[in-house]
Design a protein around this nucleic acid. Structure first.
Lengths: 344, 344
DNA sequence: ATTAGCACTCTCAATGCGAGAGTGCTAATA
DNA sequence: TATTAGCACTCTCGCATTGAGAGTGCTAAT
C-alpha cells in the first residue's frame, strides 16, 4: 500500500513536525535527511501521501502536517524499535527511587507517580487505582459510627483500602457487627468483588422475604459496602501542558480541561486499557470513545503477577513525543507492576 | 476621605463593569443612572477617583475600570445590604435539597457541593474538609494488612474518616492491635488531635528508652496514625471558568491553573478562613498570601455548633458578581453548618 | 523515474487611513 | 464656587493595501 521510500519520508516529516510545530516543506526534508532526492521528488511523494490521507496542508502554499493517520503509521513503525533511551532513564531512575519509599499505600503511590511523571514529561499524566470490580476480597470490617451509621472498611488483596459510610437502619452493637464481618470474611475471602456481587444478588433473590437473620442482614449491608461506582482517578500536570505551544489556543485548552473534568468518561477509556497488555497508543479522535480531537493518549496497564489491574498513562497533543512517552509509560507501568506484585 | 457622591459614582462604575467587562465612560453613567450630573462632572469625579487609586485607565482615551481598591470599596458598601435574592434561592434551594440525601459522608458531601456550586455559579468553587488538627478524636481502630503493615482507621466527632497504612516493624496479632486501640480510645476520647499529638510527644520524650510495653508501642504507632499533613481539598468548575470573558487570555488561565494545582498553598489560604466567622472576601493581590493577581476569593467557614471547622468558597475574576457570590457562599456555609451540627 | 525551472498562491507583518469613543481643558453659566 | 457645554486631542480598532517569503504544482528536459 505504501512503499518503503514513501514511508520513510512520512516518518521524517512527522519527526520534523514533532520537533518543531511548523508545516514541513519539501526543501527542509531534502536538506536535513540524506534521502538523495530532490525537493521536486519529495513534493511528488508528499502529494501522494496527502491523497492517501497521511498528510494535510493548512493552505495551498504551506508545507504539510501529519494527520492522525500519519501519526498512526509513525507510531506503528516506532513500536518495534523502542528501547529505554539513556537520558530518559536517568530521570526515570530518580523518580522510581523516590517512589520506592512510599509504596505502602497504593493510592498515595499512584498520586505521587502521576505528579512526578507530569513534572518531567510536561504532559498530562493519569493513573487509575486497581479496578474495584475485579479486585480480590480480602476482608471487611465494620465500625460503629453514630446512630445507625456504620463505617465499612474493605481491604483487597491488591492493597486497596476503601471505606464507606452506611446507614443500616437500626443501631447495631459492635459485637453484632463483628459477627457479621466474620461471617462475610469467611464466606467471601478470595473471591473477586464482582463475583461476590453476583453471589449476593442471587442470594437476595432467593431469600427475598426471609426474616431478619444474621445472614440476610449481613448480605444486605454487604451489598452496599462492596459497591464502588468509580475507581480513583489521578490526574496531574495541567499547568504543565499549558506551556506547550500546541495549547496556545483557548479552545484547545477548553477541550482538554473538559475531558479531564469528566472523570467518568476518562475512567471508561482507561478501564479498557487496564484490561489489555502492553503499551497502547490512541491518537486523536481515532477511538470514537475518546473525543479529544487533537490529543493523544499513551497508556499501559500495570499488573499483579500476570493479571492487569489498573493503568497509568500520559496525555499530550497529537504532536507529542511518542517515542519518549511510550518508553516512559512502559517503564512506569513495569515499576508499578513490580511494586504491586512484590508485596503480596 | 471620599464623599458620598463620589462613592456612589464609583459603585455605579464597578457595577457597570461587572455587568459588562468594558471600560466605563462618563456618558454611560449619566445615561444609565439618574445622578442628575453631566458627563463633564462625572469626568471630574472619575479623575479624582483615579488619582486616589480606585480607578484606572487602560489608555488615555478609554473609560475607566476599577482597581482592586475600587472593588474593595464596592464590596464593603455591599456587605451590609446582602439578602438572599429570590432567584439565587430557587437554584440554591434545589441544590440543598439534592445534597440532603448524601449527607452521610462529609467528604462526598463536600465534593458534591463544590460540583453543584460551580455548576450554577460558573465560578471555581472550593471546599476543605474539617481540619484534622482541631478535630476531636472519637476512636481509632487497627486492622492487620499484610506482613508488618497495619491499616489505621480514625473516626472523629466531626464525621471525618481517615485511614492510613502504617508499618509497625513486626507482625502484630489482631488481638494485640485491639488491645492497643482500646487503650488509645479510652485515653484520648474527646481530645482534639492537636492536643493528642502534643501529649504523645511529651510522653515519648519522657519514656524515651522504655522497654517495649503495650503503651509505648501504642504511642509510637499512634503518632503516625494521627498525623495528616494536609486536609482534603475539593475544587470544581475549572471548565466553567474558562468560559468567562476574563479568561480569554492564556496567561490568565495559566495563572489560575497554577494556583489550583498548588493544593498546599490553597489550603493555607483556606485554613485561615476556616478559623474566622462570616463571609470573607479577598480581592486580587490584596492579601499577600494570595498571589493570584486578577482573581478574588469569596469564602465562609462552616461550623459545628459555634466552632468553625472548615470552609467553602468561590474563586472568580476580580470582576466577579460579588453580591451573588457572597449570598451563595453564605447560604451554602449555613447549610453545611446545619448538616454537620445536626448529626451529632 | 527524476529533476530543474518557473509561475502561482497563500500567509504574514508592516503601513496607512478613517471612524468612533472618551478624555481633558477652557470658558461660560447658575 | 460648583457645574456644564464645547471642542480639540488621543488612542484603539477594523479594514484595505502592499511586498517579502515560503512552498507549491506543473511542465519540459534529462
Amino acid at each position: 500500500m505504501l512503499n518503503e521510500r514513501s514511508q520513510k519520508v512520512l516518518c521524517a516529516i512527522v519527526q520534523t513536525y514533532i520537533n518543531n510545530p511548523e508545516p514541513v516543506g519539501s526543501g527542509f526534508i531534502t536538506k536535513r535527511y540524506s534521502f538523495n532526492l530532490s525537493p521536486a521528488t519529495v513534493r511528488n511523494i508528499m502529494a501522494d501521501l496527502e491523497e492517501q490521507g497521511f498528510l494535510s496542508q493548512p493552505h495551498t502554499s504551506a508545507g504539510r502536517i501529519p494527520t492522525d493517520m500519519g501519526y498512526r503509521l509513525f507510531v506503528n513503525s516506532l513500536h518495534s524499535e523502542i528501547e529505554y533511551q539513556p537520558d530518559n532513564r536517568s530521570n526515570l531512575y530518580k523518580m522510581v527511587n523516590e517512589l520506592e519509599s512510599i509504596k505502602d499505600d497504593i493510592n498515595i503511590l499512584l498520586e505521587e507517580t502521576t505528579k512526578r511523571l507530569s513534572g518531567f514529561s510536561h504532559y498530562l499524566s493519569v493513573a487509575v487505582s486497581p479496578s474495584t470490580r475485579i479486585s480480590t476480597f480480602n476482608r471487611i470490617e465494620f465500625l460503629r459510627h453514630r446512630g445507625s451509621q456504620v463505617v465499612a472498611v474493605l481491604l483487597t488483596d491488591e492493597g486497596l483500602i476503601k471505606n464507606k459510610v452506611l446507614d443500616v437502619g437500626s443501631e447495631l452493637s459492635q459485637r453484632h457487627l463483628n459477627r457479621i464481618s466474620e461471617y462475610l470474611n469467611s464466606e467471601f475471602h478470595g473471591y473477586s468483588l464482582i463475583e461476590i456481587r453476583a453471589k449476593i444478588l442471587r442470594e437476595m433473590a432467593r431469600e427475598k422475604d426471609l426474616c431478619d437473620t444474621l445472614i440476610s442482614r449481613a448480605i444486605r449491608i454487604c451489598k452496599d459496602a462492596l459497591f464502588f461506582p468509580y475507581d480513583d482517578l489521578f490526574i496531574s500536570g495541567f499547568a504543565e501542558v499549558l506551556g506547550l505551544p500546541d495549547l496556545s489556543d483557548v479552545e484547545k485548552i477548553k477541550e482538554i480541561s473538559k475531558a479531564i473534568e469528566d472523570k467518568h468518561h476518562m475512567l471508561q477509556i482507561l478501564e479498557k486499557i487496564s484490561d489489555t497488555d502492553g503499551v497502547k497508543v490512541i491518537i486523536g479522535a481515532e477511538n470514537s470513545i475518546m473525543q479529544m480531537k487533537g490529543f493523544s493518549l499513551v497508556a499501559a496497564s500495570y499488573k499483579e503477577g500476570d493479571r492487569p489491574i489498573g493503568c497509568v498513562g500520559m496525555i499530550g497533543p497529537t504532536r507529542m513525543d511518542y517515542s519518549r512517552a511510550i518508553a516512559v509509560v512502559n517503564t512506569t507501568a513495569r515499576f508499578l507492576t513490580r511494586i504491586v506484585t512484590d508485596r503480596k
